[in-house]
Simulated assay, not measured.
Amino acid sequence: MSAMLGQSAVLLSVREELRRFSACDVPVLIEGETGTGKELAAREIHYSSSRRDRPFVPVNCGALPDHLIENELFGHERGAYTDATSARPGLVDHARGGTLFLDEVDTLSAKAQVTLLRFLESNEFRPIGGGLARVSDARVIAATNSSLRQRVADGLFRRDLEYRLNALYVRLPPLRERAGDVPLLAAHFLDLAARRLDGLSKAWTNEATQILCAHHWPGNVRELENLALRAYMRTNEPVVDVSAITELVDIACEEVVEAFRAHSTDPMDLPYLAAKSHAMHAFEHRYLTHLMARTGGNVSSAARLSGTERRQLGKLLKKHGIDIRRFRSPP
């Protein structure tokens, strides 16, 4: 099992809470933004519990169609319908003695919510075409990237089902709240990329690490993992520098410039990374303005003169909000 990586106080507190939850068998509700590792947290509960040797069965609730919800969860007996040539156990049966993980539980339709509630009330279910009720001993852990309580308030989720799922509750912190965890995770994902691609081990430069730490990470840990893979593939050197994460550099520059304008701060009074980003942004703007003036606003000529690709130059002009029409001579 992959553990939730991190040394921040907030993550260590969450992991301790997950270990406490593993000691009992009541349902758990995990809430957190997309990419925070909700399935990983559910697995941490499962593999820290006495159920660790039994199945962990993940279910994407958003992919369960209404007309198949009971069949998917509870299975069917032979002859239950025309194509049922043999009996097939459902996901609840597969999770016998283990854990049933209901991801994106907030996406369940009204009909599916009723089906799940009926099962949770008694832990009993009947396969389609089956006579006698069966009892499930699977533990249920649910996860959502929205507030289930707010969904109830908005009339989109059953209150009685929310009560059943929310016996124990944990909120996973977004990456921006996990101070100090970005360098550790970034190094881990770079190593993971090397193993996946059977390639050279690589390391981030200090400057690249500073850029990573300055980013807001709206996609959280998953966004960092994807970026590390792209950065690994963009460089053939054993060291991954800022050039491999240009999308974050652009974001950092824009954020720094906005902060500078808002506070009228002398760049020399800013932290090193912020001051450097501001200087880079100012240089780019001056260079592009001068380049457009020399070429009369002709982007193709400017690209040839500057030794850059026309598409990349266009992106830079758009980033800096430079209108090339003002450099062109009137007809």
Rank of each mutant, 00 (worst) to 15 (best):
R158S: 06
V182P: 00
R171P: 00
R171F: 03
V92E: 00
E177I: 04
A3T: 14
P271Q: 07
A3V: 15
L102W: 01
E177Y: 08
T209D: 06
A143L: 02
N206E: 15
E33H: 09
P218M: 01
L185K: 08
D53E: 13
D266V: 07
H46Q: 05
A193P: 09
H216L: 02
E124F: 14
Q150D: 15
Q113S: 03
V182S: 01
R261M: 11
D250K: 12
N166Y: 04
S109M: 00
L175R: 02
L316S: 14
A143I: 00
L132F: 12
P55T: 11
T246F: 08
R134Y: 06
F101L: 05
A143V: 00
L316D: 07
G98F: 00
F327G: 07
Y81V: 06
Y287R: 13
A41E: 01
D53Y: 00
L73Q: 09
F74Y: 08
V182I: 11
V152M: 06
A63R: 10
Q210E: 15
R20K: 13
L91D: 01
L248T: 09
T107G: 00
R43K: 12
L18M: 08
D266E: 09
E39M: 05
S146R: 10
A41T: 06
Q210M: 15
A23P: 02
C213Q: 06
V257H: 02
P331G: 07
I69D: 02
D160R: 04
H67V: 08
W217K: 01
E254Q: 11
P238R: 03
A143G: 01
R310L: 00
P173S: 04
E39I: 05
M292G: 02
Y232G: 03
H188A: 10
P65F: 01
V239N: 11
T235Y: 03
Q312E: 10
N226H: 11
H46D: 01
A187L: 08
A3C: 10
P58G: 04
A80W: 15
Q150P: 04
A80K: 14
R15Q: 14
E121K: 11
E162G: 06
I245N: 09
F21L: 15
L5M: 14
Y169M: 02
R326V: 14
